[in-house]
């Protein structure tokens, strides 16, 4: 049985680093569920958050292989209990005068936000963990989802410690 793991990688912001990381997953036969990349509080250091479905032994192997990449500075697995993770999602939903109020009600219930409205559609943004986003989508489905875009999970550990501590010499 494989389970989902959320890995956080601090990497040097060098050309090709995303290719190296993604290619390593592909070459070793692991599927990436989601991937999010951005800069961090340290100049020249980026953070890659990757969700991957694996069981224990391959997870150790993929972590070790990632660690061998010269531009990878640090890898941690963020556990659900000790970290917070968020997905960000934009959904374009079909609406008309008869369904709009129902859609807006769902938006309120899920603490989502409408960011664009036209006569036959609305664009909604929602932030939350994967389960919440999936639940929200299920509610919207009957109205007709015209377009969906997701950011991939980003995550940070709880508490005051920072992942980048002791990374930079």
């Amino acid at each position: 049985m494989s389970t989902q793991h959320l890995l956080s990688l601090l990497v040097e912001n060098k050309p090709g680093i995303l290719t190296r990381v993604a290619a390593l997953f592909a070459r070793r036969g692991y599927n990436i569920e989601s991937l999010a990349v951005g800069t961090t509080e340290i100049e020249g250091v980026s953070r890659i958050t990757v969700v991957v479905s694996l069981d224990g032994q391959p997870l150790e192997q993929v972590t070790k292989q990632l660690n061998k990449l010269i531009n990878v500075l640090k890898i941690v697995e963020l556990e659900e209990e000790t970290s917070v993770a968020r997905d960000h999602m934009l959904v374009k939903v079909r609406t008309d005068s008869s369904t709009r109020s129902q859609v807006l009600e769902a938006v309120t219930l899920f603490r989502a936000r409408v960011i664009d409205v036209v006569s036959d559609a609305v664009v909604i943004e929602v932030t939350g963990n994967t389960a919440k986003c999936q639940a929200f989508l299920k509610v919207l489905e009957p109205f007709g989802i015209k377009e969906l875009v997701q950011s991939g999970a980003i995550a940070v550990s709880r508490g005051s410690k920072s992942m980048s501590e002791k990374v930079i010499r």
């Binding site: 090709g16 061998k68 010269i70």
Partner: peptide, 14 residues
Amino acid sequence: IVGITMPITKHSFL
């Protein structure tokens, strides 16, 4: 060539 050799080098530079 950097792309081609990524999986077969310890590291590569452009």
